[in-house]
């Protein structure tokens, strides 16, 4: 049994073509709720960025708790952003990510796909309801994280 995580901020345009499991699919409840709030309310504008970044991280946790018991053989999950790097890029130093990460599935490997900064904007709107971080800082933070953790980096 082997579980990999693919961090790629452009995967939503071509979902599932490589057989991986999308943790933030367009037709999922989470993305549907963000889209609904965007359409119907001013909540996404009025509330702090930290609220939605933590909710994003928690969605990763919840889906990992749902899917982890079903993993057989090799499996790859896909997410657009790495939560810790989002927090760095949004200058949020007080958060509950450490506790969320402790409850999350353990990945045998993590693959980071490098994309241009412009690719981050539509994906942030889709899963965070707005651009809630500095794209330049995010790329620097996630690249740094990949180097420290020894993740595979693809361009």
């Amino acid at each position: 049994m082997s579980l990999s995580l693919l961090i790629d901020p452009t995967f939503s345009s071509a979902p599932g073509t490589d057989g991986s499991r999308d943790l933030f699919p367009d037709d999922g409840e989470y993305v549907g709720a963000i889209a609904g709030l965007q359409r119907d309310t001013t909540i996404l504008h009025d509330l702090p960025d930290a609220v939605f970044i933590e909710l994003y991280a928690y969605e990763m946790l919840e889906r990992s708790c749902e899917f982890a018991p079903k993993v057989r053989g090799e499996e790859t999950w896909r997410v657009p952003f790495w939560p810790a790097s989002l927090l760095v890029a949004a200058d949020i130093s007080v958060h509950a990510l450490r506790e969320i990460e402790r409850m999350m599935a353990v990945f045998d490997s993590i693959i980071l796909v490098n994309r241009p900064q412009t690719a981050l904007v539509p994906e942030s709107n889709r899963v965070l309801g707005a651009l809630r971080f500095d794209p330049e800082l995010y790329v620097a933070a996630v690249t740094d994280q990949a180097r420290i953790e020894g993740w595979e980096v693809q361009s």
Partner: peptide
């Protein structure tokens, strides 16, 4: 609270 939002829209 957000789970109730997810449930509302779905």
């Amino acid at each position: 609270l957000f789970d109730s939002i997810k449930y509302y829209y779905s």
